[in-house]
Design a protein around this nucleic acid. Structure first.
Lengths: 251, 251
DNA sequence: GCCAGATTAAATGTCAGACAATAAAATGTA
DNA sequence: TACATTTTATTGTCTGACATTTAATCTGGC
């Protein structure tokens, strides 16, 4: 592990990269202890604060964890699916909010991915996952449910569908799509949507998943996507109309 | 933005979280300059090195960028799809290598996701993307091609297919799947694979994409997945046999 | 008045050394 | 042996300083 002190790049960034590469290459294995900060500072010929900045960078990516006290130190972290989920959701949320992704593009991606899971889920879903879907549908039908709660229930429903595929890698990949996009979509469409319509489609999905009817699940997801896009367009249109009424000249 | 000095959590982690939350909530917008390190230290009532550790954490997630000199400082970074790609690939690679994900699970996820893109790609691929696929197929047929080069070409081919869907969000989501899993698969199967077989399936895909025949693309991907899994199983089996011959007692 | 070069100022990057807090290990004692 | 105490290694944090970079400002000559 070496760095170039003459480079214009931050020393802490270089050190972080060197250690990260060593982890990816397998030179440092899970739960292995890194040298102490003092030893690393010595090795790279930098000061301890610089080493610490590098270690914090790695900690932010969940690549290492640190422990205080004697026989403490920095350890290579086993990257867990849950940690990766969280990062994916954060990243996806920011990507969508910062890059002016159109509703249609986000919606298309989200449903394309979900439809990739659906046939597997129809085949393999556990009774538990099916029960979760049923329970969320029931919750969604209760009067007095806030929009936030309805949205959260919606996410749980779709997560259960995705997890039904029984493939952790798929669930991880979908986490960003479902958890980041669903709230976005709900935020846009909740004023106009009909809960009955959504619940009816959710029920169609759950029924088909129960009977392991992959084709019907797919068809229901297609309908849900079409309905969601229709809603979004009507919202955008009515907003434009309101704006036009208010300021007819600048519209 | 506030922190709790009595918490057992690192101050730098708390500060990073406070700023990150502000960015996600939209209180800090893209390209906005954060207060200087000295001002942040003052605000949170901590020292400058502590603030710096927090900022490095955010920089590691591409949430901020820093600039030296007068009127420099830390700025909220527009998270670009390319940055997110890179992080996704790194994370996916580590997840696979650290979590003993079985070949079948990874393979299933990868092809399920790719098949989600394929119909869209058949519809929308540009002439340019089709040309890329053809060019890579041609390269794959050249004698003397190293295994590394063949693998890289394979990735480029599938990336072109995915990008053909013309949906940046889908491309981003798929980056992890294709770029992280393809090399893994090649590493496992390259000893046993038949390049002719793969090239023939690639050609089938390209032909179907050219004629916008989504069903045939899908069928070819299914065949490619089946072939890949077959290869992996034969490799695992022959390895087990070799191991059994070498040390019949510990096997 | 205007432009080129020198100067200044503000900010991050780095260093050195110190002390605090923590937790495991070593040690002493009943 | 079991328990309490001390030691020690390590990370967490602070202070203050200097180095480096870069934009803005000033200054002198035309």
């Amino acid at each position: 592990m070496k760095i170039d002190p003459d480079s214009t790049v931050d020393l802490s960034a270089q050190i972080a990269k060197a250690i990260r590469d060593a982890i990816i290459a397998g030179d440092l294995i899970v739960d292995q202890r890194l040298p102490s900060e003092a030893e690393l500072a010595d090795h790279f010929d930098v000061s301890r604060p610089t080493v610490r900045e590098a270690l914090k960078r790695l900690a932010a990516q969940s690549l290492i964890r640190t422990q205080r006290g004697a026989s403490g130190g920095a350890f290579v972290n086993r990257l867990r699916f849950e940690d990766a989920y969280a990062q994916q959701v954060t990243t996806s949320t920011l990507l969508l909010s910062m890059n002016a992704v159109s509703f249609d593009v986000a919606c298309e991606a989200r449903y394309a991915l979900e439809r990739a899971c659906a046939p597997l889920s129809a085949q393999r879903r556990t009774p538990d996952q099916l029960a979760t879907m049923r329970a969320e549908i029931h919750r969604q039908g209760q009067p007095g449910l806030t929009d936030e709660a309805f949205c959260a229930s919606d996410v749980t429903f779709h997560r259960a569908l995705v997890d039904g595929a029984g493939n952790k890698v798929l669930s991880y990949q979908l986490a960003g799509a479902v958890e980041a996009m669903q709230p976005l979509m709900n935020m846009i469409t909740f004023t106009a949507r009909s809960r009955e319509e959504i619940i009816s489609l959710h029920t169609e999905i759950a029924d088909a998943v129960e009977t392991q009817d992959a084709l019907t699940v797919d068809a229901a997801l297609v309908k849900l996507e079409a309905y969601t896009r229709l809603l979004a367009h009507s919202v955008v249109k009515s907003r434009a109309n309101r704006a036009a009424e208010k300021e007819p000249k600048t519209a």
